[in-house]
Design a protein around this nucleic acid. Sequence first.
DNA 1: TATGAATGAGTATTCATTCAT
DNA 2: AATGAATGAATACTCATTCAT
Lengths: 233, 233, 233, 233
Amino acid sequence: MSRPTQPSSDGTSRGETRTRDRQRTTRQILDAALIEFSSHGFGGARVDAIAERSGASKPMIYSYFGDKDALYEAALRDAYVQIREGERELDLETLSPVESIASLVRFTLLHYRQNPWFIRMLNTENLRGGRTVRLIADAAAIQSPLIERLGGVLARGRKSGEFRGGVTPVELYVSIASLCYFPISNAHTLRAVFGCSIDDAWLSKHEQDTIRMILGYLTPGPEQQENSQERAT
Amino acid sequence: MSRPTQPSSDGTSRGETRTRDRQRTTRQILDAALIEFSSHGFGGARVDAIAERSGASKPMIYSYFGDKDALYEAALRDAYVQIREGERELDLETLSPVESIASLVRFTLLHYRQNPWFIRMLNTENLRGGRTVRLIADAAAIQSPLIERLGGVLARGRKSGEFRGGVTPVELYVSIASLCYFPISNAHTLRAVFGCSIDDAWLSKHEQDTIRMILGYLTPGPEQQENSQERAT
Amino acid sequence: MSRPTQPSSDGTSRGETRTRDRQRTTRQILDAALIEFSSHGFGGARVDAIAERSGASKPMIYSYFGDKDALYEAALRDAYVQIREGERELDLETLSPVESIASLVRFTLLHYRQNPWFIRMLNTENLRGGRTVRLIADAAAIQSPLIERLGGVLARGRKSGEFRGGVTPVELYVSIASLCYFPISNAHTLRAVFGCSIDDAWLSKHEQDTIRMILGYLTPGPEQQENSQERAT
Amino acid sequence: MSRPTQPSSDGTSRGETRTRDRQRTTRQILDAALIEFSSHGFGGARVDAIAERSGASKPMIYSYFGDKDALYEAALRDAYVQIREGERELDLETLSPVESIASLVRFTLLHYRQNPWFIRMLNTENLRGGRTVRLIADAAAIQSPLIERLGGVLARGRKSGEFRGGVTPVELYVSIASLCYFPISNAHTLRAVFGCSIDDAWLSKHEQDTIRMILGYLTPGPEQQENSQERAT
DNA sequence: TATGAATGAGTATTCATTCAT
DNA sequence: AATGAATGAATACTCATTCAT
């Protein structure tokens, strides 16, 4: 029943073509899965919809990935892989420490805006209690080298006297991510409750504010504010 | 199973127990719905599970609320109502401006930690594109008077010279919420990707950092940082 | 809990009032049931709808009638009772035989048109295989004295030479009923399939045709037509 | 269970069995649906029962037809299609006008007796107010070419002097259908109320009576009867 | 290998019927 | 006696998954 495939004219062998087809199909399925899972959450996602959008048949999806959970896992991992690839374009090594931080903020915000499905996948996964990310946490792809690079920036800044000590890269990055993630992730409820529309202008302003906040936090300065609550208690 | 209802002292009679039972049942259904929807998202939530957890029968749920969508809407609204009630306990009027801000940060973080289902409901709703919150946005319950009160704090701070101008209460609140929301909302993925466990200690430290960041942002100061990127560009 | 009812001012005693109330409620339930059953069939009828339309509570309906089947049975019997009452107004004794027949046709058609729920109840019951009408067939109310009276008309007509013999009243009545029932019962499908709208004008014409057909059938005449098929076979 | 399918001789290959199975399954579902809907009405029909009787699974039914309404629509349309197919066997062109009419009556009665579900489907649909037949009325299948053919018979009869004028084919057909439909449709209630059992013998006699009535109605004759009521008024 | 077709096990929702007052 | 409230048992419909080819 398998139709005879004559050797492809571009020099690839039959096996290679198959491999390439398989990769292409896998890619299409993952893209469709990312859209579907990030649009409707895990429970609301439909394998049918993924099949239709990807152009692959359902048995194919099952044969490639196993079941819905496994497909979700693959999609989540792929989400991280794509994001990590994006992060590689970020330059934290040649800019000045201050500029590196500003650049990181700008990049993070832009990244979230350009890949809204990523935020949605993270929301979905956290709603699920992280049960899947835990499974794939050991895989190298998911861990971000960003922390290490950010550690370098902090060290440089401390050495140059621009930054104070006592700030870990993880804490710093979580703060940056928080400020970039939340307004985009929660745009709908923010608009409904506070009447603010999180559009380009709003986010541009927010970008400035965030940079100011983060740099203010890193600056050595007179350090009066952080004692405020100690006095209060 | 029927708890002893002491005779009502306010003159209401008969029907009273029915009413009270209805209220109690409604409450139980809403509680169960909040747990279910915030645990599994809308698509993954099961009306059966809500019935079982609440102790109400399914027909009762449908008779009280209509359908799954309406039940979700009621639960979402209730989530906001509960949060608004919590916010009333917050004192932003008698404390000093700086202390008010610190207090708001502490309160927000505590609030999110103590009511994790709230964060999860917001995530769920935003995953749905906010289609339900839009429906109930006009209800008084949902809009927060917090913004107005925060505006008062900012005004007082500006008058006393502690705060600079040019900061709107919404922007400020979004930043505070961002910093408090994200680490809790995304605790699972953060742990998997950055290896940090968002526990009490972590959050205590984060609370300090957040207060420092926010106050640093509000302080007039030499204003060098916020120009950094202008130099860069 | 039963409120004291002072003796009614119109001379009826408490017991009588209760009896009268019960009768009135029963009547209202039956009316609502006739509408509901004849509108939606047995399977499509909703006890809730009957309760709402009748103004009676569902437990009352169940206490009065038993269950849905029994209620249907009562409604069906009532349909026949009402129809029989209507038939009493028909005069088949004083008019001439020919006029009696014409009058019966006119009456039957009018009757069906004025009580469309009756046709629908009959359709419903026949769809059910007559399982209920069989139960109540023994009750006097349901059997029609019409056949007997029609027998008298036929006898008179035969005696006067206007009608031929060999026609039983049941056969005759079935033919009349057929011609009156079908166009009304099947008005919707007739319109869809044959494009004819069964309105007043159409039915007036049909009334004439029916009378002509029936009388032609009863008239002694040269009797050529009815042999036609014997020749054919 | 799979009947042996001989290799198709018309050049179609593969997919053929699938198609044929689909057609066969569709047929079985429609048959089961006709039985179920005509036995219990729309509201009383159970999709489960149709699945069981047809041997198809419920999801298959839904995948083939859509939902219960659509299945009902398909069944109703199919009922008409089958009936129209039956009518094609009827010869109204070569027989004499009188014989044609007699033949049509005999055919109609036989048809109704042999396909009792057809009458029941019509009853069901009319009980529903014809809302579905209206949807499919435009489909060619449903409209009967019978009327046209009957018009031809009437014309021939008028030309030969056997039939009078002033009779439209629709009116005539409705009368014939009435006389054939009602005794079968209402057999159950007729038996209960008038004690007559509508069996083969009864219907044979009724067939004769109907032919007599219809032909009497068509015959030119002295035309005395139809004036009777004018005298009465 | 690839896929149209098929289904077991749900899932939201309804309804006849009964309880508690 | 009368009814608002409650529910067991369906009922229409769906979906992740597998079969047959």
